[in-house]
């Protein structure tokens, strides 16, 4: 394992963790019942889908790209799952692979367009966002409620851990995804190639790294994560609806950036994104406990935090540049 050495680039992650602890402490002092392990675990239960999609997004942003299609892919997945289960009456064991395949193929298609036609990730995934959301409405404009034993189990299943505390099956899925992602990011060639591409794509190419394959793979994985997240979201909502997860791609990006991943790529951690999601979750929890505040305060808090973190990142980049000294062009 690599030795932990503090440097500028780890500062955002550390800041994020400290911020989370402060917010948790604030909530615990202010509201009775806030400081309970179940409230903490509920953060995971309520945000399992967001953790999964943020993991996929972390790789995209690490490589210097962006994926705007994830929210729509979640909606599309929920629609496909709901309509195939309820209207076509298929077994979950057929429906789940179909859902996962859909997201994966959308991601792969976007990655191929970005790599082989040299298009901007922003515009390609924007198109993907409209396409997936549109397809969801083509299936049905109405909500399709799901009533199926498997889905009900996944929705309300409680896995006890200690005392009265419990988690949902979705949390297990999210946990497995995070563990695999951390391993991939730090202990596989693919993971390191993602970092290299985000650092300097031209250099990565000259060092003989498989840039094309890696980039397509990044968006494919993001698509897979989005559809898996879509399934978890469907378990959570027990319905399919074209408006599900509207604007979720932006929450995801916010979580990743607040988690300390540099928007320009090359620096960040999967674990950071998990903390980022936790911060978004705790803001919501605080607002619920406060009771009188409108839920729009969540948006305001996220906005303010995002701004803070982007400024922090910029300061770090400037600092590390002046440290190296400016190298003249000639």
């Amino acid at each position: 394992m690599k030795k932990l050495n503090l440097d500028y680039k780890q500062l955002p992650l550390i800041a994020t963790i400290i911020l989370f602890i402060i917010m948790y402490a604030f909530g615990s002092f202010r509201y009775t019942g806030f400081f309970s392990s179940q409230v903490f675990l509920n953060l995971f239960i309520d945000n399992a889908f967001l953790i999964i999609v943020a993991v996929g997004m972390t790789f995209v942003i690490l490589s210097g790209g962006i994926d705007l299609s994830v929210g729509s892919v979640i909606a599309l997945t929920s629609m496909i799952a709901a309509s195939l289960i309820m209207n076509a009456g298929l077994s979950p064991w057929i429906v789940i692979p179909i859902c996962l395949l859909t997201g994966t193929l959308i991601g792969m298609g976007q990655g191929a367009l970005i790599q082989y036609f040299n298009l901007q990730p922003f515009i390609v995934t924007l198109a993907g966002m409209f396409l997936a959301r549109g397809l969801a409405y083509v299936i049905s404009v109405e909500t399709i409620a799901i009533n199926h034993p498997f889905f009900s189990y996944m929705a309300s299943g409680r896995i006890p851990i200690w005392g009265d505390n419990f988690i949902s099956p979705s949390v297990i899925i999210a946990f497995v995804v995070v563990v695999i992602a951390v391993f991939v990011a730090h202990f596989t060639k693919y993971g390191r190639n993602v970092y290299a591409i985000g650092g300097n794509e031209q250099s990565a190419l000259l060092m003989g790294l498989p840039v094309a394959r890696t980039k397509v793979m990044i968006y494919t994985v993001s698509g897979f994560c989005a559809s898996l997240s879509g399934l978890v979201f469907t378990f959570y909502m027990l319905s399919g609806y074209g408006l599900h997860a509207n604007g979720l791609e932006l929450d995801t990006i916010a979580a990743v950036v607040i988690g300390g991943t540099l928007l320009t790529g090359g620096s960040g951690y999967v674990a950071g994104s998990v903390v980022g999601v936790m911060i978004l979750g705790i803001i919501q929890t605080v607002i619920v406990f406060e009771g009188t505040l409108s839920s729009w305060w969540t948006k305001i808090a996220i906005g303010a935090l995002l701004l803070l973190f982007i400024v922090l990142q910029r300061v770090i980049v400037i600092r590390s540049k002046t440290k190296k000294g400016i190298i003249s062009q000639h």
Partner: peptide, 23 residues
């Protein structure tokens, strides 16, 4: 032509890392 965001050891080995038991 290296990646400044990676460690020295990585810059030397990236693309042909030493693998042990799949990691």
């Amino acid at each position: 032509n290296l990646c400044t965001n990676l460690s020295v050891v990585e810059n030397i080995f990236i693309g042909r890392q030493i693998m042990k038991k799949g990691r």
